[in-house]
Amino acid sequence: MAEVDNPRDSSTPLDRALAGVLVGAYKGRRLNQEYLHHRTGITVATLQRLMAGKSQFSVHQLSLLAEAIGGKTAPEYLEEAMGLHGHS
């Protein structure tokens, strides 16, 4: 599988809210970052940065992660994060 890293090492408040939503979702399903790595092709190092809220999510990464985690679509995870961040 091709590498799906994100070179941007800065994040926004929305990225941090999205990270919190996704961490809650994958841990709630008893998944781990190693599983997400194998399902998405995103390196564990990049997953660690994303899930710690230290890097920006690309649309592609969010789509891959939503599919791997399940339960919701990428737009639904984003909408939840926007609600937590105060966007309507």
Results as ranks from 00 to 15, higher is better:
residue 1 M to D: 09
residue 2 A to T: 11
residue 2 A to R: 14
residue 2 A to G: 05
residue 3 E to I: 14
residue 3 E to C: 08
residue 4 V to H: 15
residue 4 V to G: 01
residue 5 D to Q: 13
residue 6 N to I: 07
residue 6 N to W: 00
residue 6 N to D: 06
residue 8 R to A: 10
residue 8 R to N: 09
residue 8 R to S: 07
residue 8 R to G: 04
residue 8 R to Y: 07
residue 9 D to Q: 03
residue 9 D to A: 06
residue 11 S to T: 08
residue 11 S to R: 03
residue 12 T to G: 02
residue 12 T to D: 10
residue 12 T to Q: 10
residue 13 P to Y: 06
residue 13 P to A: 07
residue 13 P to N: 12
residue 13 P to F: 00
residue 14 L to Q: 09
residue 15 D to W: 09
residue 17 A to N: 10
residue 17 A to P: 07
residue 19 A to F: 04
residue 19 A to C: 04
residue 19 A to T: 06
residue 19 A to W: 07
residue 20 G to E: 08
residue 20 G to H: 02
residue 22 L to S: 10
residue 24 G to A: 09
residue 24 G to R: 11
residue 24 G to P: 02
residue 25 A to G: 09
residue 26 Y to T: 06
residue 27 K to F: 03
residue 27 K to E: 13
residue 28 G to H: 02
residue 28 G to R: 06
residue 30 R to W: 10
residue 30 R to D: 10
residue 32 N to W: 05
residue 33 Q to I: 08
residue 33 Q to G: 00
residue 33 Q to E: 09
residue 34 E to C: 03
residue 34 E to V: 13
residue 35 Y to A: 04
residue 35 Y to P: 00
residue 35 Y to L: 10
residue 35 Y to K: 11
residue 35 Y to C: 05
residue 36 L to K: 12
residue 36 L to F: 11
residue 37 H to C: 15
residue 37 H to T: 15
residue 38 H to E: 15
residue 39 R to Q: 12
residue 39 R to C: 04
residue 40 T to I: 13
residue 40 T to H: 02
residue 41 G to F: 05
residue 42 I to C: 04
residue 42 I to H: 12
residue 42 I to G: 03
residue 43 T to W: 09
residue 43 T to H: 02
residue 44 V to N: 08
residue 45 A to L: 11
residue 45 A to P: 12
residue 47 L to R: 08
residue 48 Q to G: 06
residue 49 R to M: 07
residue 49 R to W: 09
residue 51 M to Y: 13
residue 51 M to V: 13
residue 51 M to E: 12
residue 51 M to H: 13
residue 51 M to K: 10
residue 52 A to P: 01
residue 53 G to I: 00
residue 54 K to E: 11
residue 54 K to A: 07
residue 55 S to I: 08
residue 55 S to D: 04
residue 55 S to Y: 06
residue 56 Q to V: 12
residue 56 Q to P: 02
residue 57 F to K: 00
residue 57 F to R: 04
residue 58 S to N: 04
residue 58 S to T: 15
residue 58 S to F: 01
residue 59 V to K: 07
residue 59 V to F: 00
residue 60 H to Y: 08
residue 60 H to A: 11
residue 61 Q to E: 03
residue 62 L to Y: 01
residue 63 S to H: 06
residue 63 S to D: 01
residue 63 S to Y: 00
residue 63 S to A: 03
residue 64 L to M: 11
residue 64 L to S: 06
residue 65 L to F: 09
residue 66 A to V: 12
residue 66 A to H: 09
residue 66 A to G: 12
residue 66 A to S: 13
residue 68 A to F: 05
residue 69 I to D: 05
residue 69 I to T: 10
residue 70 G to M: 12
residue 70 G to L: 14
residue 72 K to S: 11
residue 72 K to I: 03
residue 72 K to F: 06
residue 73 T to H: 02
residue 73 T to K: 01
residue 73 T to Y: 02
residue 73 T to I: 02
residue 73 T to A: 01
residue 74 A to T: 04
residue 74 A to D: 08
residue 74 A to Y: 03
residue 75 P to K: 07
residue 75 P to A: 03
residue 75 P to F: 06
residue 78 L to Q: 03
residue 78 L to P: 01
residue 79 E to M: 12
residue 79 E to H: 13
residue 79 E to R: 13
residue 80 E to Y: 08
residue 81 A to W: 11
residue 82 M to A: 14
residue 83 G to D: 14
residue 83 G to C: 04
residue 84 L to P: 02
residue 84 L to R: 15
residue 85 H to M: 07
residue 85 H to F: 05
residue 86 G to M: 09
residue 86 G to D: 05
residue 87 H to G: 07
residue 87 H to T: 11
residue 88 S to H: 14
